[in-house]
Computed example of a mutant assay.
Amino acid sequence: MAATSPVKDFLVTYLMPEKCYREFFVSFHLHVPCLKFVLNRVVGFWILLDTFLAQLPQLLKILWRGSVEGLSLTSILLQLYAFSCPVVYAVSNNFPLFAWAERLFTLAQTAAIIFLILHYRGDTLRGILLLLGYSGVMFLLGSYAATAVVSVMQASSLAALIASKALQTVTNHHNGHTGQLSSVSVFLSCAGSLGVLFVSLQETESSLASLSHILSACLSCVLLAQVLCCRSSTATATKKRE
């Protein structure tokens, strides 16, 4: 029976309340508040997916290819800073672990990417020292940082992420290809940025915050366009190296 179908159970459990299911699939009515609710739920899943998995394809691609060609170290360092700010903020404010645990996974992936960039560039010792120093700084910030410092870090995380995307975009343009930049990671990041933009435009925010989210989403789209358009150039560059 339709009332107990697996499809209905899935939709009602994860995407919409029972009322919206009846509006869409029983009454065949495009109920605007329900549509908005579903879109927000889907966007939330996309944002979570970006937060949890966006860096993993990039890490796996580096390990698989054994190369970090085309990746901007400064860009990844800015990403590490941007991803660290919410963790420091959460620890300083004693948020429960489940509220920010996925950020730790993202930090570990980003830190591993930075180490691999230095390792494949022949600077393994510097990579180890950088990770040790980073771990110490994170501990000190989470345990002893002043509230004003933590607040400034949290407020600057989006700016760091925008700068990171801009640097990688410039690097791609300068190289004429995207190197080992993962198309899957870029796609997940783009989807997550568009999701954050969709949510932020519905909330009451300052014009500067909205503009920042728009800029971040635009840069993500530019990166995705570069990856899609430069595949042939990247393949040619890889063959020349081999």
Rank of each mutant, 00 (worst) to 15 (best):
H213Q: 13
A101R: 10
R103Y: 15
S75T: 09
L132M: 06
V38R: 02
E69I: 00
G136C: 11
V152R: 15
V222P: 00
S216K: 08
A101Y: 08
I76P: 02
W46E: 14
N175L: 14
N93D: 04
A217P: 03
A235Q: 14
A3C: 00
H31N: 09
I128E: 10
A225G: 11
L228V: 04
L39N: 10
L73Y: 06
H31I: 01
G136H: 06
S233P: 02
N40S: 04
F98I: 13
S135R: 07
S193D: 05
A146T: 12
S67V: 03
H173M: 10
R126K: 09
L158Y: 01
A155W: 07
K239Y: 07
G192M: 02
Q79P: 01
I162R: 08
S183V: 12
V196K: 05
A225N: 11
T110S: 09
H173E: 09
L228N: 05
V68Q: 06
K165Q: 13
N93Y: 02
S189I: 08
L49R: 07
A235H: 07
G192T: 02
L129K: 05
G136A: 11
V43H: 02
A146P: 08
D9T: 11
K61C: 01
D9L: 07
A82V: 04
G136F: 14
A3N: 12
K19R: 10
Y81I: 07
E242N: 13
A145Y: 06
A108W: 03
A155K: 12
Y81A: 13
V68E: 04
S216T: 02
R121T: 06
V137R: 13
L63V: 11
L53K: 09
Q180C: 14
A112E: 10
S75L: 06
R41P: 01
C230M: 14
E203H: 03
A145F: 04
L141P: 03
S232T: 13
L53N: 07
A99W: 10
T238R: 14
A2Y: 12
L48I: 06
V91Q: 15
A209P: 00
L129E: 08
A237L: 05
V186E: 10
V91I: 15
V152A: 15
L39Q: 12
L60T: 05
S5K: 05
C218P: 01
S193L: 04
F187A: 15
G122M: 08
S164I: 03
L30R: 00
G142D: 00
L73I: 03
S143R: 12
L219D: 00
G133P: 01
V149D: 15
A209V: 10
G133Y: 10
S207Q: 15
L130S: 05
R241L: 15
Y89G: 07
R121M: 14
K61V: 10
Y89L: 04
Y134W: 12
S92R: 14
S232K: 15
L97M: 11
V38C: 12
V186L: 05
A101E: 13
L197E: 04
W64A: 09
L56R: 01
L161C: 00
